[in-house]
Design a protein around this nucleic acid. Structure first.
Lengths: 114, 114
DNA sequence: ATTTATACCTATTTGTTATAGGTATAAGCT
DNA sequence: AGCTTATACCTATAACAAATAGGTATAAAT
């Protein structure tokens, strides 16, 4: 019931970041664009969302940062740790349980309506 | 990252309640059990979750309460309003966008990994 | 010289879920 | 008669994460 109607988003930024970083290491600004593209524009997470989550993930040692220079500009690349992989599996399982449960409930409601 | 690891739940209680009440009017205690059953045990929302959401939905006039007596016991039945139906459609659409976006991202990550 | 794109960042607001209590009646058990 | 379980409702507080709205600085493009 936020103004911008951002329901169903809890845990999603974390899941998206971990799953993208499971592919290859990436930096924050790149992740912001990748999320938009890979999700088919379903998600447009602003930098103000992505960076704090990255910092939290790093603090929990789910990802690890490596600073690199690219054309005179600093980029901070993040890579998944072993701990991060475990967490990604957990989150994926939870996601499947939740989305399965919602689907089951919505279908039940639909069936009852026909 | 709550202790109980309840990710992906934002907006879910509201969606579940509205979609169950779209079937037929129900009372709080009944909804608590129905959510457990219909979701195939995916969700076990406690009464302390369900009742406050019902009150919030009522205040927003998405559902309407009718008190009834059943074997000497008071039950408060809730029914979806027209406004509630609209909200349910909105929420369902949002849910589909989010779950579709997550699926797309998870698949992309998986494909890249093979 | 100015704007746009890149690349990073934080503080604050918001509000919802979950927990942990609590009350009261009816029914079932010993 | 006394105790426990099931039914049926409730609230206060904690906890936390997402979104907004800012902000800085360099490189490239106009």
């Amino acid at each position: 019931m936020s103004k911008t109607n951002a329901a169903f988003m809890s845990g999603v930024p974390e899941l998206l970041l971990l799953s993208l970083l499971a592919r290859e290491e990436m930096y924050g600004y790149q992740l912001v664009r990748a999320i938009r593209v890979v999700s088919n524009e379903a998600f447009k997470l602003a930098e103000g969302v992505v960076y704090p989550v990255l910092h939290a993930l790093e603090e929990k040692q789910l990802i690890k940062a490596k600073q690199r220079l690219h054309e005179g500009r600093t980029r901070i690349y993040y890579a998944l740790t072993a701990k991060g992989k475990t967490r990604l599996k957990e989150l994926t399982t939870t996601w499947e349980r939740v989305s399965g449960g919602v689907a089951a409930t919505l279908n039940a409601a639909e069936v009852a309506h026909v």
